[in-house]
């Protein structure tokens, strides 16, 4: 049993590596054989070189890659954390308490469809172009999925389980905390995952606001000075970090909600 599982895993790993190799191989060939101009795209090997160079060098965009990275990570994660800490409980309470739902849902329904980027002009006028302004834009993007999913998670609670608690004489608060919240965690984590992705992908847009640091800024600079390798290093940094954050979130979810994962 274990052996077949291991074999399956090895097979999966080989396929994954094969996929990556083919992808980067074609890319390398496309640039080196001149199918694509080096002015618009660099080969993977050049990008690795730029990556190593940028680890310690500030030129040509004014800061090292770790500085950009740290600035962006701080920005994205702090906005994401605030959006989660406010959004998840808000969704829970709106899902459970009808009056709160009636009070807040109309506002939320109007705000919800506005794309985060559409907030930029008004944010510049009210909050300026500093760290707070950027945080707010990412917060808006990360907030919405947190609220919606937590809200739906509570709404989708199995009524039989609520009735079990009721027949034991549980109070509303006990029903909320011991039945509705645990039962919503499935949806909540989907929301948190979407929110994390949203915060990370809105980064570039937020860093369009007069920045001097950040991966989004680095990408913008790469375009201005026509350095596709810098752009791609920035893009990959965002992509790989996003994937790593997802893995960390999965591990966290397995700790908090183990009943969904155990074999």
């Amino acid at each position: 049993m274990n052996k077949t599982k291991k074999q399956g895993k090895t097979k999966y790993l080989i396929l994954s590596i094969l996929g990556l190799t083919v992808f980067f191989g074609i890319w390398q060939a496309a640039v080196k054989l001149g199918w694509v101009s080096e002015r618009s795209l660099k080969a993977p090997t050049d990008i690795i070189q730029t990556f190593i160079y940028k680890l310690t060098n500030k030129s040509p965009d004014g800061a090292t890659l770790p500085t950009h990275f740290w600035f962006s990570l701080r920005l994205a994660l702090s906005s994401f954390a605030i959006a989660t800490i406010i959004g998840v409980p808000l969704g829970w309470f709106m899902g459970f308490y009808k009056k709160l739902d009636m009070l807040l849902n109309p506002i939320f329904e109007i705000v919800r469809p506005i794309p985060p980027i559409a907030w930029i002009p008004i944010v510049i006028l009210t909050l300026g172009i500093g760290f707070q302004a950027k945080m707010f834009i990412i917060f808006v993007a990360a907030f919405v999925p947190n609220v919606i999913n937590s809200y739906l998670g509570i709404r989708m609670t199995d009524m039989t389980l609520v009735n079990v608690a009721k027949t034991y004489g549980a109070t509303d608060w006990e029903i909320f905390t011991t039945v509705c919240i645990p039962s919503s965690l499935n949806m909540v984590f989907t929301g948190i995952r979407l929110s994390l992705n949203a915060s990370w992908t809105t980064l570039v847009a937020a860093e369009m606001l007069a920045s001097t640091k950040g991966l989004g800024y680095m990408i913008q600079m790469g375009r201005t000075i026509i350095r596709p390798d810098i752009i791609i290093v920035g893009m990959f940094s965002i992509g790989i970090t996003g994937a790593l954050l997802n893995i960390i979130l999965n591990l966290f979810e397995k700790k908090v909600a183990p009943w969904r994962y155990r074999d």
Binding site: T160, L161, N163, V164, T167, Y168, G169, P182, S183, L185
Partner: peptide, 19 residues
């Protein structure tokens, strides 16, 4: 009154708390 009396209910549907 379930809050006062000690009542238990076994439902037809599966009702163990999954978590």
């Amino acid at each position: 009154d379930p809050k006062k009396h000690n009542i238990s209910f076994v439902f037809q549907e599966p009702s163990a708390f999954p978590w």
